[in-house]
């Protein structure tokens, strides 16, 4: 029970990171981006490439930072991967989404994103093969926190949680203390009014993609570090991330953070209540319950 709770918090940390990017995009661009989770794959796989590159160039970087299974090479790979993923997100928007946005309506965007997800996922499968890959084949053993009840925590996951919280704090400062943060919120509230008041809309959208992509890339790496990399990881993650976004309320960064943890905990606690075959339904049952009480999510607001 306590173990499930802790596991849930640790799972929640990468879901939250993924959900933050998604909630921003859904809020500013007003469409459910089904390809968002592919940015996680993209980030995770580009980190794999940079990781191999770093370890190849400077072999000392490939040593593990005990007790983590993390290496310096991977840590250095993360910012590179964030840049690559952020720019990819931007490019996909420039090439596809912007054109659809100009002509079509919200739903065209949703399906364009579905199509993009198929494309990205299968290109990754063609390049890296369909089998799972790992950053490190060594298994990092869990630390025993308590014997009765048995509580175990993996060092990697503690790192992931701490790093995720730091990133969220930085984002919080950016959003609450900078002009960019104000501009973002203004655009989200009312795009035309914000433009009249001198907010550069295209530039704001650009930053949203860069931030969303970069955070997704980190989430992807963290997921890969805790589990494994497979080309279909986007498909497996898209629903929990959506669930987190919706539970938190679209547009609310803090909601996304909380939603990520709630979904993570629910998925892990579910096993206490339900047979394990039913676990995939749990995040959704949770969404339905939350939405019945609060139709716009925990922190979301109604808008026209």
């Amino acid at each position: 029970m306590i173990q499930n709770l802790i596991d849930g918090v640790l799972t929640g940390s990468y879901l939250s990171l993924g959900a933050i990017g998604l909630t921003l995009v859904m809020h500013i661009l007003r469409f459910a981006n089904f390809s968002h989770a592919e940015l996680l794959s993209l980030g995770a796989y580009s980190a794999l490439v940079f990781d191999a590159l770093m370890s190849g160039l400077v072999p000392t970087l490939a040593e593990k930072l005990a007790p983590l299974s993390l290496t310096w090479a991977l840590i250095i790979a993360i910012p590179f991967s964030m840049i690559v993923t952020g720019i990819s997100a931007l490019l996909i928007d420039k090439l596809i989404f912007r054109r659809v946005r100009e002509k079509g309506q919200e739903l065209s965007m949703v399906f364009a994103s579905f199509g993009m997800a198929l494309i990205v996922r299968n290109i990754i499968g063609l390049i890296f093969g369909l089998s799972p890959q790992l950053y490190s084949k060594d298994i990092a053993f869990a630390m025993v926190l308590s014997l009765d009840p048995l509580i175990l925590i993996k060092p990697d996951q503690v790192f992931v949680l701490v790093a995720a919280l730091i990133l969220m704090l930085i984002l919080h400062l950016v959003l609450s203390r900078t002009t960019f943060g104000y501009a973002l919120r203004a655009v989200a509230e009312n795009p035309s009014l914000a433009q009249v008041n001198g907010v550069n809309l295209p530039r704001t959208i650009m930053y949203v993609w860069l931030i969303g992509g970069a955070l997704a890339s980190v989430a992807g790496v963290f997921y890969g570090l805790s589990h494994q990399l497979i080309p279909v990881m986007g498909r497996d993650l898209v629903l929990p991330i959506f669930a987190a976004t919706i539970v938190g309320g679209i547009g609310s960064v803090y909601g996304a953070v909380l939603g990520g943890f709630i979904v993570g905990i629910a998925a892990n606690l579910a096993l206490v209540v339900l047979p394990s075959g039913y676990t995939p339904s749990v995040p959704f049952l949770l969404i339905i319950i939350v939405l019945m009480i609060r139709p716009h999510g925990l922190f979301g607001e109604a808008r026209a």
Binding site: K103, G104, S108, A112, G115, I119, N122, I123, G125
Partner: peptide, 17 residues
Amino acid sequence: GSVQFILIGAVIVGMLV
């Protein structure tokens, strides 16, 4: 198999653009 999915995705995205 993978190429076919890419084609299907491209057809849908292309139509929407």
